[in-house]
Amino acid sequence: MTSATEHLGLAPVDPAGARPAVSLTGVTKDFGNVHAVRGIELSIQPGEVVAFLGPNGAGKTTTIDMILGLSTPTSGSLSVLGLEPREAIARGLVAAVMQTGGLLKDLTVKETVEYTASLFADTRTADDVLADAGISGIADRLVARCSGGEQQRLRFAMALLSDPALLLLDEPTTGMDVEGRRSFWSSIRSDAQKGRTVLFATHYLEEADQYADRIILISQGKIVADGSGSEIKSLASGRTVRATLDNAETATTALAGIAGVDSVEVRGDSVYVHTKDSDAVARYLLTQTSARDIEIAAKGLEEAFLSLTGDHDTQGAGQ
C-alpha cells in the first residue's frame, strides 16, 4: 500500500507571479489528542476549480474552517489571496456555502440577502443575486417556508453578493437532482472563467472527476494525492492479481519490484498483488515462479480510492 504522497500534476506555476488564492504551509490542527490535520502543503492558483476529496473525518472540513478563519492552525501558516483569512473575509474576498443551517427562519428570502449585503463594503444588489440564483419569485417568502433546494439557492445567492475571489463549497450538490447539479456546475464553471477560485469538499469521486480541474485527495489529515481527474483515475485503474504460491513470502520483494505494482499482500498460501500492469505481474508469476490458480480482478474505483486514502471503513466513503 502506498502511504507516501503521490504528486501527480505539478502544482501550477503562475508566470505572472500573482498571489495564490490559497496557500497552506505545514499546517496542522490538533483537537486535544486528536490530530485532525497532520501537515498540509497546498497552493491553489486563482481561477482553479479544486475538489477536496476524502472520506468523512479525513480533515476536509477542518482544513476549510482554517481557510475561512473560523479556526486557527495549531502550527504552520496559511494565507488567502496573500492575506490573513479574517482580513480576506472582511474584504468580502472569501465566501462559503455550507450544506445545512446558516439561515434565519423568521426572515424572508430577500431580507436575508439584504441583511448580508449590508455587511459588506463592496457588494452586488440583492435583486441581482436573487435573479442569478433563480429565486426572485420567492423573494418575499419566509425562509422557514422554503424547500431544501430553495434554501440552498439562497445560500448560494448570499455567497455571490460580495463577488468573492474564492468560493468554498461543502458538499455543494447533496440533495440536488441531476438537472440541478448540471446547472449548478455550469454556473460555477463560468464564474471560474472570470477568475474565481472554487474549492469544494466532496466524498463523491464522480463529482470531483467531472467538475474539478484538480483533485486533492485527503486522508487522515494528509494529502495523499494531488492531480487532475484523469491522473487520479489512473491511480484507481489498477487490478489485483491473486495467485497460489508456495513460499509466497520469499517472492514479495521481487513482485514489489515489478513496474506498476502498488502493493503486495500475503495471506497464507495466497499472494495478492495490487498493480497498474496486471499483464506484467501475471507474466512474471507464470514464467519465473511456481504460481498457480492465477486470478485477475479489476480494482473498482471505490476500492482504489479506499486503498489510496487508507480508509477501509466503507462507511461514509460515498458510492
Partner: peptide
C-alpha cells in the same frame, strides 16, 4: 486544466474595502 492566469483581472482583490464600524 484551464488556464486561469489570463482571466484573473476580472476579480481584483486589491480594490476591496473593509466596511466601517465593523459592518
Amino acid at each position: 486544466m484551464s488556464s486561469p492566469v489570463s482571466t484573473t483581472a476580472s476579480i481584483d482583490p486589491t480594490t476591496r474595502r473593509v466596511p466601517p464600524l465593523g459592518g
